[in-house]
Design a binder for these strands. Structure first.
Lengths: 153, 153
DNA sequence: TATTGTTATACTCTATAACTATA
DNA sequence: TATAGTTATAGAGTATAACAATA
């Protein structure tokens, strides 16, 4: 025992009981599953995130999207390259400012995103299978509050 | 609209509303915060995870720990190296089987883990600040159930 | 021969910096 | 000169494969 005051030493009431630890590990496992699910579509989570962002806002420049997703502009290039190669997004030079590449989600892109969403819902079902209806509602609200607390949109 | 049946196109009722997406992003943000918090202790999340595992089981060989944490044995070497350098763990050759390196958490290690736990609790408080007591209890139970569903201990 | 730990190597992800073209 | 996008380069993190010691 290296701690004279009331704080727990080691893991008696431990690290593994914190929300931070449990949310972090669970999030990692869940993301890992999702990653494997979308692999067959030739996608990685960031590609899906980009499509979701485009789905919300219809069109946006690469810089705007990079800022919104919190990634470097150079990464946005390769994400857009890949999605363009799949026919999921279209790049159009803004005629007003020919430096800007404006991205839009194509019909194929909407379709792909829809399939990803469907896969996520399947995983959702497995994940919440043991929860009551009340618990699911509570989860929804709790996630909303914590996301706000964590500075997420 | 590229989908004739009932499924949503794009993100109408979308990907960003799934538990998978929300849990994944929230977990990533939270882990990121924790990572920055423990930086000043010279630790990364995996180091803390290893210490937590040792705290639960007192002693274990590197192979056992690698298997438990789901990492490669080679990574366990560098994690143990680092923690040994900090004086947080001790490596002792098992006299019964001199191939095995048995790891134990030192007093210093318990102390370090305690500080990490305390940091996690501080983050916990910020995270759940907007939740009622009922919601916190529900969160605890819901996390337990989903962790089980996700194959976590 | 099989296993534990280690070292060497390679791969993935992503950021920073240098560069091009527009403004 | 400043900015959007691109390309080149580098670093972090981690796995796989080769190796040494021990069983």
């Amino acid at each position: 025992m290296s701690d004279v005051n009331g704080a727990a030493d080691g893991d008696s009431a431990g690290l593994t009981s914190t929300v931070v630890f449990r949310l972090g590990t669970l999030g990692a496992v869940v993301t890992d599953r999702f990653t494997r699910a979308i692999e067959e579509l030739g996608l990685k989570p960031k590609h899906v995130g980009l499509m979701a962002a485009l789905s919300r806002d219809a069109v946006a420049s690469q810089q705007e999207l990079a800022a919104r997703m919190g990634v470097a502009p150079s990464l946005m290039v390769s994400l857009a390259d890949h999605l363009e190669g799949l026919g999921a997004v279209q790049r159009v030079r803004d005629p007003q400012d020919r430096r800007r590449q404006v991205l839009t989600l194509t019909e194929e892109g909407h379709d792909l995103l829809g399939r990803c969403t469907s896969m996520a819902r399947t995983l959702d079902d497995e994940l919440v299978a043991g929860l009551t209806e009340d618990q699911r509602k509570s989860l929804d609200e709790v996630l909303r509050v914590m996301a706000g607390r964590a500075g997420l949109p």
